[in-house]
Design a binder for these strands. Structure first.
Lengths: 189, 189
DNA sequence: GGCTGCATGTAATAAGTTACATGATTGA
DNA sequence: TCAATCATGTAACTTATTACATGCAGCC
């Protein structure tokens, strides 16, 4: 593929697995070609350069695949937001969860439309496995968000909502007027 | 909290939601204090600085929470690896999926042990919602990986495995000897 | 001739990791 | 007194995003 084709691939089929902008792709292709992992196998119109993988490159990607740990990346913005949900008032918190239900149901429906794909080659079979993970992930997420929204609604009714963050706000205002301890307490840098 | 406490928090309870090293935390705390989002509310032993949030900081985090999009981050290394599974030989591919089953079952068991937590405050309730997502995620992942491993085993029996990447390797070796097109074809930079 | 899409690049900045570096306190 | 832990920082580098910048080819 050329850099341009790769950029389109990241935008389309790979959008939910990884992304990269052309400004990252082009220098990286040059670096990889310099390292002998890929090479320019064709040149086309408008300065187009098509790259192919080398034996070294194939070795490198296989080594990376076989050697990588099963740990998932710890960066999950949605989990962070959930941890902080108590900082929102009841309506905003519910709206946030409802928006997530809608969004992930939409993505689920989109993925489910693609399940008919051909799996005659190993590569297509791998695409199907990845798609299946996408489907199960979106389904689990939508179900969790719907469950969380119900839990929140029932908590609002039974125990009330919003005392925590209002207390934080009150304490914050208080502290700004009457700093607690330490020689520098109250100093805003 | 102090920077040191935050670093420990990222290592422990937040490890599966977000991480940050102390080398990122300390400069960031200084920056946030400079921006008036937090302030040094106490100083302790060994140069320890305890930070508290300001009203501006509380506004900022609430604004971020309410305004953030529901899209999940597109960076999922595991999905990328699945897309590339066809580059591995059958045994290595199976071993990779089996390792994922084991890893995610372990994490699932770990999370399930924590479900008894108290939810009397809104913040604890939010922790419980986040934990529930962790549980559902790990369960979905372990089930998917087990399913994928069975699919792979059955494909190996019925249709065989490994023709794709062996073909790529053969083509690669071939091309290096007989470049295809273009004035620069075959040139390794 | 001008617009759209193809095609590739660089610069500036932000975010994140690893390594380097130091000092204070507690407990064995 | 020595080791471990607490505690905070900087430097160098990598990764990723946004903005800036240019040129070619096809089509109306």
């Amino acid at each position: 593929m050329s850099g341009y084709e790769l950029a389109r691939e990241f935008e389309q089929t790979l959008a939910h697995a990884w992304t990269a902008q052309h400004s990252q792709i082009y220098p990286e292709l040059n670096r990889m070609a310099g390292d002998g992992l890929i090479w320019i196998s064709a040149r086309g119109l408008r300065r187009r350069k098509t790259y192919s993988i080398t034996e070294d490159g194939l070795d490198a990607v296989r080594e990376w695949l076989a050697g990588s740990r099963p740990e998932s990346s710890p960066r999950n913005e949605q989990t962070v937001r959930t941890f902080l949900l108590w900082l929102l008032d009841g309506e905003t918190a519910s709206a946030l969860l409802q928006a997530e239900v809608a969004y992930h149901r939409e993505r689920l429906a989109d993925y489910e439309r693609r399940t008919g794909i051909n799996t005659s080659s190993d590569a297509e079979f791998a695409d199907r496995l990845a798609l299946e993970w996408g489907i199960r992930y979106e389904r689990a997420y939508a179900e969790w968000a719907a469950w969380a929204e119900r839990e929140l609604a029932s908590r609002k009714e039974k125990a009330g909502w919003g005392t925590d963050w209002k207390r934080v706000r009150a304490a914050t205002s208080q502290e700004m007027r009457q700093p607690r301890t330490g020689s520098d307490a109250g100093v805003r840098h």
